[in-house]
Amino acid sequence: MALSREQMAKRVASELKDGFYVNLGIGIPTLVANYVPDDISVMLQSENGLLGMGAFPTEEEIDADMINAGKQTVTARTGASIVDSAESFAMIRGGHIDLTVLGAFEVDVQGNIASWMVPGKLVKGMGGAMDLVAGADNIIVTMTHASKTGESKLLSKCNLPLTGAGCIKRVLTDLAYLEIENGTFILKERAPGVSVEEIAEKTGGPLIVPDHVPEMAV
């Protein structure tokens, strides 16, 4: 069975390490915060300038001056700091973020990512996505393996305008966990009950399938 959004978040959360500074994008990446293992501590960075994002506030705690990059009201956790936008992106640009998780429309075997515009549709902007993909070394992309109409989002070459070139090495889809190396996808894990054949069929770019592809623990 394909992974649910929650299962995908849980799988990504298993990549977290104690003491990590992490930036989570909108959508499935945001859910990762719900699955941080109890025995580790991570600091979430929100690129509007909050390092150490806490839980949503209670009704009494709501403060218009305290929001995250999704413009939601939030709180600051113990040990948090607040900086201006240039400083916030200096953390990102300077490679200080340990793990970045973000969604995408397409990823290709050159490590290119398309996530911000669909020609013909209204373009709202890239926000901080281009800075995040260019600045981070350790990025996990989360997305469904194929579109609703069945077209693969893992391609030889992205069709949509890029968010970043040659910056993605790891992708978690609802069907598989894959890595990108030397111009090919490498199948590392499959979702429980999903066959290698199904993954291969739904992957639009070159794919290396090792002899043994373990099922993910989710």
Binding site: A90, M126, G128
Partner: peptide, 9 residues
């Protein structure tokens, strides 16, 4: 449209 970090910098 300018990436947010570029805009700030």
């Amino acid at each position: 449209l300018t990436p947010q970090g570029n805009l700030a910098e």
